[in-house]
């Protein structure tokens, strides 16, 4: 497939595969693939500063080996996207492609389309074909993270399943089938069932994916996550952090916008920065309070709840 073909004018046109390598090759940042679950967990922790259960990684790896796509489902801010992208990258040894879904996504947007002017000139040939992300991932053997799959249409979802199932992409206009048996080409979907602005997923789709549930971590683990991701000079005491997490948990029960661990990390980070700006080397309750108001209030209707819970834990400034 790598061979270049000669067009009518006798001028050499580069094949789609080579073009893909030209266009997307630089994005790959190749590295050694990591396929041992324990090692993946270790790398996730050290390189990506992500705390992931080895059980979860094993299930993902087992699914990949069985050629099944995985769907991470859970509330926002629990690290689905980040963990998915990191696992795909480690698995393939190449940087994963990200497909943020939207309603009007179709095959032309993810597989490739024809440049109108070039198509006029050369017809529907490889020269006028503009390859897109999914095709690139298949050819290059990289992973694809399909973010917020619920936002896409059903046809789109079925097309994805077909591709991952048969590991091939047909482009009828080119009379060409792109195939790659590289095990690095895998898909992870993310989905948030609580997001009311999104479509339901069909049974057929759900039956074909391995659904892994994400939940808010327990307080101890969340504290560990915050400590792992916190990057600030000012010291945040364990007591204060425990209170922050408790407050966040309370807010998860009450508020419309439920703060995920990512929000807690951001909260701690901002509080530390405020403390630093104050010239203090230690984060105090007032810094936490100040940061909390900004980070936790994402919707107007939550403002009162946030204020109430913050006052309960950290007093009024």
């Amino acid at each position: 497939m790598l061979a270049s073909e000669t067009s009518n004018e006798g001028r050499e046109t580069v094949s789609v595969e080579n073009r893909i390598k030209e266009i997307y090759g630089e994005l790959l940042e190749p590295r050694n693939p990591v396929r041992n679950p324990e090692l993946i967990v270790k790398k996730l922790r050290e390189e990506y500063r992500l705390l992931v259960d080895v059980d979860l990684v094993r299930i993902v790896v087992a699914s990949f080996i069985n050629g099944r796509p995985v769907m991470f489902e859970g509330p926002p801010g629990t690290g689905k996207t980040e963990i998915g992208e990191a696992i795909l990258t480690l698995w393939a040894g190449k940087k994963a492609f990200l497909l943020p879904c939207s309603e009007n996504y179709d095959e032309y947007r993810v597989i490739g389309d024809f440049h109108p002017l070039m198509a006029l000139k050369h017809g529907f040939s490889e020269a006028s074909f503009v390859p897109r992300t999914l095709l690139a991932a298949l050819v290059l053997g990289a992973g694809v993270l399909v973010d917020e799959i619920r936002r896409s249409s059903e046809e789109f979802q079925n097309m994805l399943l077909d591709i991952i199932d048969k590991r091939r992409i047909v482009v009828p206009e080119l009379k060409k089938v792109f195939k790659n048996n590289d095990i690095g080409f895998q898909m992870i979907f993310t989905s948030n069932p609580e997001d009311i602005a999104q479509n339901e997923l069909s049974d057929a789709f759900l039956r074909r994916v391995i659904r892994i549930k994400f939940n808010y971590p327990d307080p101890k683990k969340e504290a560990e996550i915050v400590r792992l991701r916190l990057n600030a000079k000012a010291r945040l005491s364990s007591t204060l952090l425990a209170m922050m997490i408790e407050a966040a948990n309370k807010l998860r029960e009450k508020a419309m916008h439920k703060p995920g661990p990512a929000d807690t990390v951001e909260w701690a980070q901002l509080a530390s920065r405020i403390a630093e700006l104050r010239g203090s080397s230690k984060v105090e309750a007032r810094d936490v309070l100040e940061a909390g108001r900004v980070v936790l209030t994402k919707r107007d209707e939550d403002a009162d709840d946030v204020e109430e819970i913050l006052a309960e834990f950290f007093g009024r400034s």
Partner: peptide
């Protein structure tokens, strides 16, 4: 999936927690 799971984890005995997680998935 469960068998692959045991293989990749190098686990020889049954792991019910894993079985449950996989059945759940």
């Amino acid at each position: 999936l469960y068998e692959t799971y045991l293989e990749v984890g190098g686990v020889e005995k049954d792991d019910y927690r894993a079985m449950r997680r996989i059945a759940e998935a």
